[in-house]
């Protein structure tokens, strides 16, 4: 793994999200707790709703367009046969790090 430094964890509001542009498209970083961040695709499999604009609750996010709810641990949609891709992410010394291999090389391969 090659961790890429993205931002200060406080740049993401608690119970909120921000977007990172990657070669795989937009990835959303969801901050579900003071020191808990999840990374997942920003695009809802239903009709492409921008998930970073959704309401974040528990370890879930609700799509802003039609209220599909995703579990950020697995990426799975509740009650729907659909999921979003999730990506390795960690917090180190207050910085949010994304795995570069997971978000960049896939595209190149």
């Amino acid at each position: 793994m090659s961790w890429i430094d993205i931002a200060d964890v406080n740049d993401i509001p608690e119970r909120g999200a921000r977007v990172v542009k990657t070669p795989l498209g937009c990835i959303a970083l969801f901050r579900t707790g003071p020191a808990e961040v999840f990374a997942a695709s920003n695009s809802c499999p239903h009709k492409g709703g921008p998930l970073a604009d959704g309401i974040v609750h528990g370890q879930k996010v609700t799509c802003p367009l039609h209220n599909w709810v995703f579990d950020l641990n697995t990426g799975e949609a509740q009650g729907e046969d659909a999921r979003i891709a999730t990506y390795p992410v960690r917090i180190e010394a207050g910085r949010v790090l994304l795995d570069g291999a997971a978000i960049g090389k896939r595209d190149a391969a």
């Binding site: 890429i4 990172v20 990657t22 070669p23 960049g104």
Partner: peptide, 14 residues
């Protein structure tokens, strides 16, 4: 700044 992407990795990865 909250309305802009947090980071743009498209350049680095290319």
């Amino acid at each position: 700044q909250d309305y802009a992407p947090l980071a743009d990795l498209t350049l680095e990865a290319a």
